[in-house]
Amino acid sequence: MRLMLVATLLLVIITVVDAGRRHRARNRIRHRSYGRQASVSSSRKQINCNKIRRRQACSKCCSVDGNWGQWSEFNPCSVTCGEGTQSRSRSCDNPPPAYDGADCNGDGTETRSCNTIECLVDGNWGAWSEFSACCPVCGVVEQTRSRVCDNPAPGPGGADCPGDSEETRTCDSNDCLDNAPISLCEGQSFDVIVLLDVSAGSITDEGIAQARNLIQGLYTELRIDGNLRRFGFIAYAGAMADFNRLVLGADDTATQQSRIDGISVINGPPNLETAISVLVSDFTNLGRTGIRQIGIVIGASDPFTIDDVTRFTNPAKEANIALYAVGIVDLVNEEYLQAIATNASGAITATSEQLEETATRLEQLICLCDK
């Protein structure tokens, strides 16, 4: 019995001692663990995040969101006038995003309008047009061409195009007329009355012969047929009662040509004013509506002033009668003939050697140029 008690007491002592040893051991472990944690925490507070990144000690606790740096200056405008653009930029580097940090919000570039004032635009010429026609026109004529200041047109404050908008040059269309087809007057309708000064002091017998030849040539060249193209003449001198007249459209063509051959000198002064009056009267009373009326004045002298001639012929021109003037000798002043003719090209001086050429020229004027 005593032995059992001793054994039990020993067991109790051993248990108590063992429990105390284990308690002290646990306390030592806790103390060491707490000290280590406190040391690590303190160290982290002292270590810079950059060093931690380099050591890759953490990835979440030190993530950095990006932030924009300063804007640059705007670059120069894309144009010097008119509406242009200019831009500026910035970088996401203040700081840049790191370790899964967010990118910068917004745009890295910015654009705006610049120089919205209008440019000064100087005008520039467009292309020249074609020259106006040279043929069929008679004699030396002026051709013109034009251009427009629209390439571009001058803008507000811009300069106009330098130079002229029109250009002129001369053109001799006689070559065109020389190549014109024969029988120019075929198919055309007109009435012709020839006025011839046969006053004794103005024309010689030789001049009368030349005038008759010219009128016969005209009769042929103009293709007078008594129907589409009718003919008459007034050989004037002295009073109207003295005139030798072939009334417009009277007689057949053979009789008319015979009457032409019978023209001769008449005593008395030249009387152009009365002859023009008779011409206008004949066309008024015997002319056909819508048919051209043509008067051809032939003379071998210029017995009147330019002012008088202009006054004499005005009634015919006002009645839309086309007047042509032929001087059959060199003595007739060209200005005198031009005062009679409706157009300057219708004033012709012809020598005896040029009568056939003159008849052809009148045909070209009447049936091609002035039709």
Rank of each mutant, 00 (worst) to 15 (best):
V6I: 09
L11F: 05
L11Q: 14
D18P: 00
G20V: 04
I29K: 14
R32E: 09
R44M: 08
I47W: 05
C61Q: 10
D65A: 10
N67S: 09
N67Y: 06
N75K: 11
T80Q: 14
T85N: 08
S89N: 09
D107G: 06
T109I: 06
N124C: 00
E130C: 01
V137T: 10
D150N: 15
N151G: 02
G155M: 04
G158Q: 07
G158P: 02
P162Y: 10
S165P: 07
R169D: 02
C176D: 11
L177E: 10
P181N: 03
V192Q: 13
V192R: 08
L196W: 01
I215F: 02
L222M: 10
R223V: 03
I234H: 09
A237G: 05
G238I: 08
A239N: 11
M240W: 01
F243R: 12
L246G: 04
D252N: 15
A254N: 04
T255L: 07
Q257T: 11
V265H: 01
N271F: 08
L272S: 14
E273L: 06
S277Y: 13
S277M: 12
D282C: 07
T284Q: 15
T284F: 09
G287H: 14
Q293H: 14
I298L: 13
I306N: 13
R311S: 13
N314P: 00
P315W: 07
A319Y: 01
T342F: 00
G346W: 06
